[in-house]
């Protein structure tokens, strides 16, 4: 396992290099002159040229990437064109907020979805099953920008129970977490239901029933343990998706996370920030997949990894 982790971690480095190169090239392909963003639309040609030199844009793209990489390895991702802040500081300010929102949303989603999925499976084709799956269908179908506004209008504007936007207290987390988590609740509940149903049809479950084991123990102790394996791999995807996918929810709730940072930077053509956040999102996907693989082995002892796989 340790060798496997070292092997996978080493593999992450070239992957990160590829991601950063792709992001860097993609940013340079956008038909925008970053120099103009610095000096403004009413600058002279001379001022533009000075800005290009200052930003290193007069150098070949390979040289530009080399400088970027060298600086990035020393922890210098440049400065935001808009705010003037160091990009590393911006990410350090916002990433914890996104991780907090994401972890609360996923915790909410999984805590709700797994019992819901199990209940739907053991009460298959009953009203409970249909009710749970209808909720899941709504969760998947309702766009989160609409759901977010609906929750704001109901619980913040109408009932005044919770704040509409912002951050700082647990109350600020409630509405964005529900908005972000509900779509994952829906997916996980459906996945849990089908996974539990599949396990319940296995021979060993029948044998457990035949042995006279209590139904609750069969489902929650024996069946669920095996049914949860595909859900763990889903969790890996969700961790990366929740970091990248919180853009809309963070924007609606003015939540100060990397999602909002990214969208504001895209709107403002703040290239150094966009570049860094996109690379970070790429890294999150890689790390989340690694985490899912590790959790997989913990949940299913039959799976053994080796460095030579």
């Amino acid at each position: 396992m340790t060798r496997y982790l070292i092997h996978r971690s080493l593999f992450l480095l070239p992957m990160m290099l590829v991601i950063s190169a792709l992001v860097f090239v993609a940013m340079r392909m956008i038909p925008v002159d970053p120099a103009e963003l610095v000096v403004g639309p009413y600058a002279t040609a001379e001022q533009r040229e000075l800005a290009r030199q200052k930003l290193g844009l007069d150098k070949p793209i390979i040289a530009q990437y080399g400088i970027y990489l060298l600086n990035a390895l020393q922890g210098d991702l440049g400065r935001s064109f808009k705010s003037g802040k160091e990009v590393t500081a911006l990410i350090a300010d916002t990433l914890p907020n996104t991780l907090l929102l994401g972890s609360v949303a996923l915790t909410f989603a999984y805590l709700l979805a797994i019992p819901m999925g199990v209940l739907a499976a053991i009460r298959q084709n009953t009203l409970i099953d249909q009710g749970a799956m209808t909720i899941a269908l709504i969760g998947i179908s309702v766009p989160n920008f609409w759901l977010g506004l609906l929750l704001i209008l109901t619980f913040a504007v109408g009932l005044r129970w919770l704040p509409a936007t912002g951050s700082g207290t647990w109350a600020h987390l409630v509405l964005p977490s529900i908005t972000l988590g509900l779509q994952y609740t829906a997916i996980v509940a459906r996945m849990t239901r089908s996974s539990v149903l599949e396990v319940l049809r296995q021979d060993y479950v029948r044998a457990l029933h035949a042995k006279g084991l209590e139904r609750r123990k069969v489902v929650y102790v024996h069946a669920l343990k095996n049914a949860v394996i595909p859900i763990i791999s889903l969790m890996g995807l969700h961790i990366s998706a929740v970091v990248g996918g919180s853009v809309i929810v963070e924007t609606i709730f003015a939540w100060p996370g990397t999602g909002q940072l990214l969208i504001n930077s895209i709107i403002g053509r703040d290239f150094p920030v966009v570049q860094a956040v996109l690379t970070l999102l790429g890294a999150t996907v890689l790390l989340a997949n690694l985490l899912a693989d590790v959790l997989y082995t913990l949940a299913d002892p039959r799976i053994k990894y080796s460095a030579h796989r």
């Binding site: 913040a156 005044r160 936007t165 924007t251 609606i252 709730f253 003015a254």
Partner: peptide, 18 residues
């Protein structure tokens, strides 16, 4: 000062007393 990229969220924020 707080920035709201979305007009509807900004409007809801004042209606909610934020």
């Amino acid at each position: 000062y707080r920035h709201f990229a979305d007009d509807a969220s900004r409007t809801a924020a004042i209606e909610a007393g934020d």
